[in-house]
């Protein structure tokens, strides 16, 4: 088959996306190296504290993804351009994956430190509620056939969910928390908190940066995938109508 054949229906991958993908993988590898070999071992908790870097970074990506969904949803409601809906959907999927990583890795960190896989702590509950909201988002979309209605409802639910998450956190926060506060605060004496030495802080920042790049890369790939999926649907519809 000729090479040009494949490009007939699909846009070739933009150079920028290729560069971005390569850079993200490289930066991610650097972050992983720093986490394992550069950052010092935490004295009180031992090796398991290294989970912290990617655990927090995954949570950050999840929150960022849902922010993107809410914003893309709002733009969709204003402009009714389907690409914003595709972006919102792509972002939700990635957010759900990363919040899952966040919850499970946090649970593994908690086991040796708090002595239990799970505690009913505000942050844990909020992360779980967030995951449930966006799983509900995906289920809502699955239940609607009309693409325009699906997009509108998705946008509405994405915005409502994003409003609800911070106030859920606030309301549960009024109960006492045992979760370590990473940046100072009153959490100093709580089990699981620690002082971040400069190499740790640097590793943390690089991890956050790497995960942000990984998020943008994944989002772009997922968005292109969704574009092609829509294209496929339309071609099928056209064939059926002929």
């Amino acid at each position: 088959m000729a090479a040009g054949d494949a490009n007939r229906s699909m846009e070739p991958m933009p150079i920028l996306l290729k560069v971005l993908s390569g850079f993200s993988v490289a930066l991610f590898s650097v972050a992983l190296y720093m986490v394992w070999f550069y950052a010092p071992r935490e004295v009180v908790m031992g090796e398991v504290q290294r989970v912290f870097y990617f655990h927090v970074a995954a949570g950050w990506v999840g929150a960022l993804a849902f922010l993107v969904t809410a914003i893309a949803g709002a733009i969709y409601l204003l402009r009714e351009e389907s690409r914003w809906d595709l972006l919102a959907l792509s972002s939700v999927e990635i957010g759900v994956v990363f919040i899952l990583i966040n919850i499970v890795s946090g649970s593994i960190w908690a086991k040796p430190i708090w002595g239990t896989w799970w505690t009913w702590d505000p942050r844990l509950i909020t992360a779980t509620i967030m995951e449930l909201i966006y799983i509900a988002y995906l289920m809502l979309r699955q239940g609607i056939d009309d693409p325009r209605r699906r997009a509108r409802f998705g946008a509405v639910y994405g915005i409502a969910g994003f409003i609800s998450v911070p106030i859920t956190f606030l309301s549960i926060r009024l109960l006492r928390t045992i979760h370590p506060l990473v940046f100072g605060g009153e959490g100093g004496s709580l089990a699981g908190s620690f002082n971040m030495e400069p190499p740790m802080f640097l590793t943390f920042m690089i991890s956050l940066l790497a995960f942000t790049f990984v998020f943008v890369t994944l989002l772009w790939h997922r968005y292109r995938l969704q574009l092609r999926a829509e294209q496929l649907e339309q071609t099928k519809m056209k064939l059926l109508l002929e």
Partner: peptide
């Protein structure tokens, strides 16, 4: 759809 979003009110 409703329970996770309305949770803060219920709490």
């Amino acid at each position: 759809l409703l329970f996770p979003i309305v949770l803060p009110v219920v709490v």
